[in-house]
Amino acid sequence: MILGHDHARATVPATSANLGPGFDSLGLALALHDELEVRVVDGPGGVVTVTGQGAGEVPDGEDHLVLRALRLALDHVGAPQPGLALTCVNRIPHGRGLGSSAAAAVGGLVLARALLADPAALDDDTLLMLATRLEGHPDNAAPALLGGATVAWLDTDDDTGPHAPHAVRVPVHEDVVPVVLVPTERLLTQHARSVLPAVVTHRDAAFQAGRAALLVEALGRRPDLLLPATEDRLHQEHRRPVMQDSLAVVDALRARGVAAVVSGAGPTVLALGRRTVVDGTGADADQAVDEVLRDAAGTWQVLHPAVDQAGARSWSVA
């Protein structure tokens, strides 16, 4: 495989995984984007320039996740590994449960696709496989790559070795309006996972399966069912000790009828409001969010990203 271009750009969206009951399977792409640009340069290795989120914190060379993903994709198709200059304009908060690492992985992969003479060699199935290899699971990578809401799964779920990931898009009703509440505190995904129990009861598992199935219907056709459809018994309550402020906000919003959940591994809170203004500028969650945050602990940034229907995009630059 040869490179057909020496300059490419990409955009990749933030994502929110789980959405309550869809643990490690459901995800939603949000219109909050990192922007990436790569150029082939003389000499070996890579140099990374980062502005925005993570600037001064993430690696500036070959260890940078976008660059690692890009090189993984080139290696997968047998393409050469040139010197690379990568620029990242990051808008997705890090360590907040909004899929920043998945965005970096997917971003590097689609940049590689844009550099190839034959982009079809890196189709979406291949990129999802590579992203899952980097991430360990496809729940954030799938919506980052495909856009919209997705259900992702692995061929099997055991410890015998790697298994192929798959994902399908599910419809999102036009009246579903995400509201994202981002705290200043961060939380490592590994820490959030460490507090989860190894075993759950049959009763809770059955409850969770029913709510996850209902959530697909609520997202696509019945937004009026979002509140019961986002009930969870598998992970959120177990994580309360490491994100008490976030769960307090979730509780307060749900008490007001808003379908609020922890976004991914947290500590960001995602509220799935319903459109109330014809021009799309209002949601029924807005007043409840204002009321709850007046009394909430900590400092919160409120974002109103639309559902990103396009997913990651990349293109070569002449």
Rank of each mutant, 00 (worst) to 15 (best):
D158T: 08
L128E: 05
L145D: 08
L181D: 06
D125W: 00
C88H: 11
P138Y: 06
L270I: 04
V151N: 00
E291L: 12
H5R: 14
G264R: 09
Q53Y: 02
I2P: 15
E185C: 09
L30Q: 01
A248C: 03
A149N: 02
L28W: 02
Q301C: 10
P119G: 10
E174T: 15
R211N: 01
L111S: 12
P143C: 05
D139F: 12
V47I: 06
V249I: 10
L226N: 08
E185K: 06
D224S: 15
R186S: 15
E291D: 12
S100T: 13
T132K: 09
L109H: 10
L188W: 04
L219V: 09
G161P: 03
G273Q: 03
H191I: 14
V278T: 14
E35S: 13
E37P: 05
L26H: 13
P21D: 11
L3V: 05
L247H: 09
V168N: 08
S314Q: 04
A114I: 11
L30F: 07
D279C: 04
A79Y: 05
P305T: 02
A310K: 13
L109D: 07
A114C: 08
D159P: 04
R294T: 11
T230R: 05
A306R: 13
S194Y: 00
Q81M: 10
A152V: 07
T126A: 15
V180P: 01
E237A: 14
V258Y: 07
G99E: 02
A283E: 02
G273V: 04
M1F: 04
L145R: 11
Q236K: 13
A152D: 07
L226R: 07
A102I: 01
A218W: 00
T230D: 03
R91K: 13
A29F: 01
I92T: 11
T268G: 00
S246E: 12
D204R: 08
